[in-house]
Amino acid sequence: MNVLQSIAAALTPLGLLWTLLIIGAATFLHELAHFALARWQGVAVKSFSVGMGPVLLRRVWRGTEWRLSLLPIGGYVEIDGMAPVEEANGVYRQPTRGFAALPTWGKVAVLLAGPLMNLVLTIGLMTLTFASQGVPAPDRARIEAVLPNSRAGALGLQAGDVITAINGRDIPDTYTLNGQPHAGWESLRDTLATSGHKTLTVLRDGTARQVAFDWQASVNGVQQRLGIQYAPDVQPASLPAAFVTSLRTTGEAVPQLLRAFGGLFAKFFTLNLSQDQNVSGPIGTAQIVSQAAALSPWALVQVAVLLNLSLAFFNLIPIPGLDGGRILLVLVGALRGRPLTLAQEQAINVAGFAFVMLLMAFVVVRDVSRFF
């Protein structure tokens, strides 16, 4: 099987469709937020495109040309006063109206609106998920499946059992391992990493029971498995409780996301194509969506949450060409008391755009290299 066949086998038509829909919706709402904040401040928006590349359909409505473009990836808005103005003699100059005439806070508001929209979508989708599916209980581990012919089956453990205590101690909400915080239910894995007598307190049909056994973590150098698939238990939650949990979960995810971006940049600068589970390219993303589509609609919602959160914070990285880079240039101009010259701004933006394109190419190459 060649590389193209391997890639095709990893994807599904339904997964590709859902990938385009999820990314398309996230990008559309991101650009719509830029559009709304510009219009709210009286700045004209020349065009709004859904998709990139050649324009298939166009219609002017309320002073904006709305476009449907060929490539169903991304989109853009042309806000008056953001691009250089061409004079009659073909010379370009800095714009003086529209976006350029806004105060610093107004410019930052327009640029910040897109990432904030993706962050709002992240929290909104997460709140909907928690309110509908329940809030994870970090101090309880629910057994989702017991593998056939496993030690867990011989001990009488069943799917649906909830582990509430280990070795007579209640599972804590969190614990620290190697300096990193973890949810308490994950401590079961570390408990089974050591040999000795173990006791699990299991809740089944409202009744607690003790499951005691002697455990060898490894036999002849082979790590032993108890034979269960488990996850945090979930408990019903009101809408306010779901909202608070989504805020806390988002806050906990941000440092992990920033570390993942840091790892990506480190690998980019060292041309390290080794794989990890933290950052996926377009093929990896489509593969994840394909797998989620085969599971449940809520799995797709979880993917949409991750994509929106990633899009929000990636765009805030202060690289010229991204929203964060544009905000940085606005703030530098405000501190200087005057904007950068056209030549300076163009040089910075070209360098930033080239960097982003190289980074994207690196991610794609790393993505494809998995199939060699």
Results as ranks from 00 to 15, higher is better:
residue 300 L to Q: 04
residue 91 V to E: 15
residue 14 L to K: 10
residue 221 G to D: 06
residue 112 L to S: 02
residue 146 V to D: 07
residue 88 A to P: 12
residue 318 P to L: 04
residue 117 M to T: 05
residue 233 D to Y: 03
residue 134 G to D: 07
residue 132 S to L: 15
residue 120 V to L: 15
residue 265 F to A: 06
residue 115 P to M: 03
residue 145 A to T: 04
residue 177 L to G: 06
residue 62 R to T: 07
residue 314 F to W: 09
residue 303 V to L: 13
residue 73 I to Y: 04
residue 237 A to V: 02
residue 114 G to E: 05
residue 311 L to P: 05
residue 260 A to Y: 00
residue 19 T to F: 15
residue 294 A to I: 00
residue 104 T to P: 05
residue 98 G to L: 04
residue 295 L to P: 09
residue 17 L to Y: 02
residue 95 P to W: 03
residue 261 F to E: 13
residue 200 L to I: 01
residue 314 F to E: 11
residue 34 H to R: 05
residue 367 D to S: 03
residue 149 N to A: 15
residue 12 T to C: 14
residue 338 R to T: 08
residue 144 E to T: 03
residue 107 K to T: 00
residue 80 D to S: 15
residue 45 V to S: 03
residue 3 V to I: 03
residue 225 R to E: 14
residue 372 F to L: 08
residue 120 V to F: 12
residue 39 R to Q: 10
residue 364 V to K: 05
residue 71 L to E: 14
residue 371 F to D: 01
residue 345 E to K: 02
residue 338 R to L: 10
residue 44 A to V: 09
residue 140 R to G: 03
residue 316 L to T: 03
residue 124 G to V: 04
residue 107 K to D: 04
residue 311 L to V: 08
residue 57 L to H: 02
residue 163 I to V: 05
residue 297 P to L: 15
residue 338 R to S: 10
residue 327 I to D: 05
residue 237 A to N: 13
residue 223 Q to F: 08
residue 151 R to N: 12
residue 298 W to G: 12
residue 51 G to M: 05
residue 295 L to H: 15
residue 244 V to R: 07
residue 180 Q to T: 14
residue 223 Q to C: 10
residue 146 V to T: 12
residue 116 L to V: 00
residue 283 I to Q: 08
residue 205 D to Q: 13
residue 246 S to A: 15
residue 297 P to D: 10
residue 349 N to F: 13
residue 312 A to E: 05
residue 110 V to E: 05
residue 312 A to C: 02
residue 365 V to T: 00
residue 371 F to C: 11
residue 207 T to E: 13
residue 81 G to Y: 02
residue 28 F to H: 07
residue 313 F to A: 08
residue 96 T to G: 04
residue 155 L to G: 11
residue 62 R to Y: 04
residue 289 V to L: 12
residue 367 D to V: 00
residue 33 A to V: 00
residue 199 T to D: 15
residue 165 A to F: 04
residue 4 L to S: 01
residue 117 M to H: 02
residue 100 A to Q: 09
residue 93 R to C: 14
residue 46 K to E: 13
residue 271 L to R: 12
residue 29 L to D: 09
